[in-house]
Amino acid sequence: MKCQRGHKARLHLTPDQLAQIDDQGHGARAMWNLLHELWQMTPKCQRSLTRMDEVIRQARKDIGWLKAVPAQAAAQQVLKTYHRAW
């Protein structure tokens, strides 16, 4: 039997960094939920990554709390992960 070992690195974050990571996590979760609702409401012939990407970009401009989620790093990854999961 092969023994697998991993490494855990503990982060020692400042309160500001912790608050920023917390905001990003909650924003990504909320974006996932919004994407899920949009995906279900959109007709199958109009479901595409480019269209959903445009909607995310517009939502980040219109909805203030979505700005906590970085555009390239997290927002695009949430969309790609959701698309793969669906």
Rank of each mutant, 00 (worst) to 15 (best):
M1S: 12
K2Q: 13
C3A: 10
C3T: 09
Q4N: 13
Q4S: 12
H7S: 05
K8C: 10
A9S: 02
R10I: 13
R10F: 06
H12C: 06
L13S: 02
T14Q: 06
P15M: 11
D16V: 08
D16M: 08
D16T: 08
Q17T: 01
Q17I: 00
Q17S: 02
A19Y: 11
Q20E: 15
I21D: 03
D22A: 13
D22K: 11
D22Q: 14
G27C: 09
G27E: 03
R29E: 09
R29M: 11
R29S: 15
A30L: 12
A30M: 06
M31S: 02
W32R: 10
N33F: 07
N33P: 08
L35A: 04
L38W: 15
W39C: 03
Q40F: 13
M41H: 08
M41T: 14
T42P: 00
T42G: 02
T42Y: 06
K44G: 01
C45V: 02
Q46A: 11
L49Y: 02
L49T: 01
L49K: 15
R51Y: 10
R51A: 15
R51S: 11
M52T: 12
D53S: 13
E54K: 14
V55L: 10
V55T: 09
I56P: 00
R57C: 09
Q58G: 00
Q58C: 06
A59M: 12
A59S: 10
R60N: 05
R60W: 03
I63V: 13
I63F: 03
W65I: 10
W65P: 09
W65M: 10
A68D: 06
A68H: 09
V69R: 00
V69E: 03
V69T: 04
A71G: 04
A71I: 12
Q72C: 02
Q72V: 05
Q72L: 11
A73V: 07
A74L: 15
A75V: 02
A75N: 02
Q76F: 07
Q77I: 04
Q77G: 01
V78N: 01
V78M: 07
V78W: 03
V78D: 02
T81K: 15
Y82V: 00
H83Q: 00
R84V: 00
A85P: 01
W86V: 10
W86C: 11
W86D: 00
